[in-house]
Amino acid sequence: LEARLEQANLLKKVVDAIKDLVQDCNFDCNDSGIALQAMDNSHVALVSMMLKAESFSPFRCDRNIALGINLSSLMKVLRCAQNEDILTLKADDAPDVVNLVFESSESDRLSEYDIKLMDIDQEHLGIPETEYSATISMPAAEFQRICRDLIALSESVAIEATKEGVKFSCSGDIGNGAVTLRSHTNVEKPELNVDIALSEPVALTFSLKYLVNFCKASGLSGTVKLCLSSEVPLLVEYTLASNSYLRFYLAPKIGD
């Protein structure tokens, strides 16, 4: 494997966003790119990352390899990179280590680190293609704010999408709270658009602590996409350049 990223910052932000949710992960490398899939310890949330080969320049992976990496170790090393550094990941065919090289585009500094790999026996889940009842695109910062505000009141949020809009509501010991967003197009600031595509109304309840955790990815993309269907996990997607993505799935709370 040899994969060169123009900005180390991308990998730094991705790992920073998921490191509190999942600890030891396989980075599955093949000629289409670098993928990661991992559940949190409680098996309530699933992280699915895909960094497509096109996100790297150049990208070369001659043989499929799984790099088992502890994310807190990876984060320690990534913190040694300047955000603007060029990052090259390298690994042999049957690697014991992954090699990270940081190059400054402005100076002649070149830093090199190896991280020891681990054998991780990780269950790989098949995620079915789903036609979601509701797909909501909204500013990532807005979603983060709603989750942070509501967790002050309650552990859970009900997300209800209807043709009127999408309503995030919660109730807790001190009282209730709700935020409703309607479809909204801002010609001058399209990054503030809220788009709700609905095939049928849907209402589901989710644990807010996971959603707040997912929102650590807000710095990766201006927009977040929420996809909901009855009785299936919520998909929270941050789209990255070159069709790469960071997706989180969250199992709903069911009952009553």
């Binding site: 098996h43 790989h124 644990s207 996990p233 199992a251 709370k253 009952g255």
Partner: peptide
Amino acid sequence: EGTQANITQFFGGS
């Protein structure tokens, strides 16, 4: 508030 479901109830092994 309902019971927290598990991801593996929805996504099978592959």
